[in-house]
Design a protein around this nucleic acid. Sequence first.
DNA 1: GGGTTGTGTCACCAAACTGTGACAAGTCAA
DNA 2: TTGACTTGTCACAGTTTGGTGACACAACCC
Lengths: 226, 226
Amino acid sequence: MRVAGILLVEDDPSVRTALELALTRQGHSVTSYATGEEALDHIRARRPEIAILDVMLPGIDGVEVCRRVRKLDQLPVILLTARGDDLDVVVGLEAGADDYVVKPVEPRVLDARIRAVLRRAESASSDRITFGDLVIDRGALKVMLAGKEIHLTPTELRLLLELVRHPGQVLNRRYLLRAVWDHTHIADSRLVDACVQRIRAKIEPKPAEPVFIHTVRGFGYRFSPP
Amino acid sequence: MRVAGILLVEDDPSVRTALELALTRQGHSVTSYATGEEALDHIRARRPEIAILDVMLPGIDGVEVCRRVRKLDQLPVILLTARGDDLDVVVGLEAGADDYVVKPVEPRVLDARIRAVLRRAESASSDRITFGDLVIDRGALKVMLAGKEIHLTPTELRLLLELVRHPGQVLNRRYLLRAVWDHTHIADSRLVDACVQRIRAKIEPKPAEPVFIHTVRGFGYRFSPP
DNA sequence: GGGTTGTGTCACCAAACTGTGACAAGTCAA
DNA sequence: TTGACTTGTCACAGTTTGGTGACACAACCC
């Protein structure tokens, strides 16, 4: 596993320094802050790979940072707490944290947890996904092929994003109809097929031999990078 | 989130009973065992949604069960330990556990962790099972033999998945006809046999001496890995 | 209003899939 | 060994499925 860009937020200077040092030794690249406000700014500006947040912080606390981050992005989050306060665990996990670690923590343990979380998060992270020539910017809602912007209609874009949200997975037509069109829609017929075909015409170099959106006969469609 | 089929493995009868009761109250469906051997049998036969394993078990311990399960399947695993022994945490996470909980644990906390792990597992893509050279990806609906993708038709795939869902079990023709074909089908004729034969032609190195799908004369077919 | 764009539906066609039955081969019990 | 029964094998035609292009209508924007 590659080295991670870690954001560490911890108000106690001695703990912060110690953890920063330990994680750096473990090969990670670490940036640390003492407050939630600074952390949020950093996250927005620098997009770290993972955030390790102390729960008890002055101002915006770790759980709140976690909650806001989750709305913004799929950034993996590990919460740190001074004691194993059970209530906190529940609140933290419900706020969407990926893991929860009790201080004091052995650096080796924290490292293992970081790697485990990153491994899990690897699939569903960034806002901008690249599949070979195809770049899909979920933030800007833009699709680019070989550097050139491709115009997709709203429905086409929703369908493509839905497929991309589950890379490698086969999604059947009923599911796609519910996810992309209003589930009020009863008539399915060939709607999905037609839309897929339109997307292919725009993003596939050879629509007859698609490399992105694959037909799985009898089941549905699968987005998988070449 | 829906109710989960939980496998609980804990050798201490009082702890086991208490957890089983608590989780059942929380709305989960729980099956519990005292040993790793029983747990592995259960996993192979019944495919629970998540396993909660005590680390310290007579015979095969929780970490070892976790390791073996990981080879077989992507079943989510939570490890239970009596104290927060840091070394165990590392070993456990490296064995592929999704989470790690220290006893004694508040039922509410365990429930939150279970839900968090299931939520993550749900989004994680790969849903693949490996039997020697044969890899079946249930999410991507792909079958690979020795690294090469094998094309199966929809019916063949459904039949194979049905067999694989019950590894080691003999499934009779009537059952398979109901499960794979529309149960409206009454006439059986040679349908199942022909389909099995077609699958064998694709996945068995020597279709005449099948290693995956075995004929059980007079009863039906059994999928069992070599 | 008039043109443009987006969307759902349809019909047609090629390709893929599937059920069937006949027959061969295999297995078991007497 | 023989006969009864079970399973494997194969070819083929009817059916299903999805790709494709055309088209009508609605929504939207000047």
